[in-house]
Design a binder for these strands. Structure first.
Length: 466
RNA sequence: UCCCCGUUAGCUCAAUGGCAGAGCAUUCGGCUGUUAACCGAAGGGUUGGUAGUUCGAGUCUACCACGGGGAGCCA
């Protein structure tokens, strides 16, 4: 394996004159008279290492081996790092020995050195990670994931693994995937003709989790601050560049915390992550700025430094009503903010992230804390330009009696929530939390336009390849 | 799920209802410490599928599949 100090990232930071062994995959190759140039990349850094094979080494390797050094081939080269006379790089590795581990026949290798469309690359998801774009995307995804843990760990949050399989169809956060061990060709039936889930693996219907929030609350009320970071599943038939059936979500939950505290954490969290990307992903951001979205770095800097705008839902509605334009969806207090409304707010009225709070209770979930006005709940959505909602959160209803009446109002059964309600009976306290969609954040950090291109292997309606 | 657009060479795209084209990639030759190298030549096609209109369909019609954009749902 490649050890620390041996990655191409490390070699590129070494001094001329040192001997190194570089291993990776060939991005391109150019031939001169009696000299060959190979761009080698091991994924550790955006830049390629230029390998120079001079006439002596080339003839020692022989034409048969030389012909195998093509785009996509896996190559190991040992040589001396020297100052490069060329203009594209300061250092290059002058090869003394070279081994082709796995050739990649040029006639059929799907990745060319020309640009490809994102749609085409998606069809070759097993190879697209070797491309400039996806190398950069997944390095940033990795940096962000690490930063997420650092942010919470540095603040004393406990990382909790909430279940993937759940038997409670809670929350109503969209359609769920059923999980069953029953034989779908011969389903057991009750006398009424319904599927008899008592014979299923869990003895009742089970689903893939749409959120870890309710369990995270359990941990917040034991460990004070907790967070989840894991896969989440929605069976919604959503066909947009912003939705996946399987995505990764971060859900912190804080005890002794109200909505103001919740918003403060959300803002501090987002800014921490963006600053980290700006500091650690300079070369990858160069690429995104040059090829994907020329504004991406400026946007990250701006958002990382500027306090977020705060608006109540009622204020947001007023802003929209004052806007001089024809809405496709009418602006009415009590209705959901439509995409066109969110876009106007973030992209035109305010032009930076906005935290909208205190939504009408009718359009939000049962667990959100009721305000004293009786009409609104302590919900917050963080809206950002281009992506829309990137964070959704709330202060949770900590009062047992109010929670119970909210369940009834929403037409939800009490029984499945017995433990959730019991948390309010024993040692209840104000608490709050939110959910951040990892992929939407990565879209924001990279300027990538389609969420399917910021997750290694996207799952969407009608598509679960690789 | 709804609306709109698209599907032609390995990739990216042209082609008034009338002989199927280019660039890149590939192969071969040339040139060159090269930088998405350059110059020349060659090979490469059931125009997404099915049915129809027409003397004639890549082009028009219907349905289907897949992809993209927008909307809804949401993170």
């Amino acid at each position: 394996m490649i050890r620390p100090g041996e990655y191409i990232r490390d070699i590129l930071q070494s001094a001329a004159g040192e001997r190194h062994t570089a291993r990776g995959w060939v991005k391109t190759r150019r031939d001169g008279k009696g000299v060959h140039f190979v761009q080698l990349n091991d994924g550790s850094v955006f830049r390629d290492l230029q390998i120079v094979l001079d006439h002596e080494v080339a003839s020692r390797l022989g034409k048969a081996v030389l012909d195998l050094i093509t785009t996509g081939a896996c190559l190991e080269v040992t040589g001396v790092l020297v100052d490069s006379p060329g203009s594209g790089q300061s250092l290059e590795l002058r090869a003394e020995e070279a081994t082709v581990h796995g050739p990649a026949p040029a006639a059929t290798y799907p990745l060319q050195k020309k640009g490809h469309t994102m749609e085409y690359l998606r069809e070759i998801a097993h190879l697209r990670s070797r491309s400039n774009t996806f190398g950069a995307v997944f390095r940033i995804r990795n940096v962000v994931s690490y930063a997420i843990h650092r942010f919470f760990q540095e603040r004393g949050f406990l990382y909790v693994h909430t279940p993937i399989i759940t038997a409670s169809d809670c929350e109503g956060a969209g359609a769920l995937f059923g999980v069953t061990a029953l034989d779908l060709q011969a389903l057991p039936r009750t006398t009424e003709g319904a599927v008899d889930f008592s014979q299923d693996f869990f003895g009742k219907p089970a689903f893939l989790a749409v959120s870890g929030q309710l369990e995270a609350e359990i941990f917040a009320l034991a460990f004070s601050n907790a967070y989840t970071f894991g896969p989440t599943f929605r069976a919604e038939n959503s066909n947009t560049p912003r939705h996946l059936a399987e995505f990764w979500m971060i859900e912190p939950e804080m005890a002794f915390c109200d909505l103001a505290g919740d918003m403060a954490v959300a803002e501090e969290f987002l800014q921490f992550l963006l600053r980290d990307v700006l500091e650690r992903c300079d070369e990858d951001l160069d690429f995104f700025e040059k090829r994907i979205d020329p504004t991406v770095r400026d946007t990250l800097r701006h958002v990382a430094e500027t306090p977020f705008e705060h608006l109540t839902y009622t204020e947001a509605i007023a802003l929209l009503e004052q806007a001089d334009r024809d809405w496709e969806y009418p602006v009415v207090w009590g209705g959901d903010l439509q995409a066109e409304h969110e876009r106007y707010l973030t992209e035109e009225a305010v032009q930076r992230p906005i935290i909208v709070t205190d939504y009408p209770r009718e359009i939000k979930a049962f667990y959100m804390r009721m305000n004293d006005d009786g009409r609104t709940v302590r919900a917050m959505d963080v809206l950002v330009p281009r992506i829309g909602e990137i964070i959704g959160g709330s202060q949770r209803e900590e009062r047992a009696d109010v929670l119970l009446s909210r369940l009834k109002d929403c037409g939800l059964p009490e029984e499945p929530y017995w433990w959730y309600r019991e948390l309010r009976e024993y040692g209840s306290v104000a608490h709050a939390g939110f959910g951040l969609g990892l992929e939407r954040l990565i879209m924001y950090c990279t300027g990538m336009k389609n969420i399917r291109d910021v997750i290694p292997f996207p799952r969407t309606p009608g598509s679960a390849d690789f």
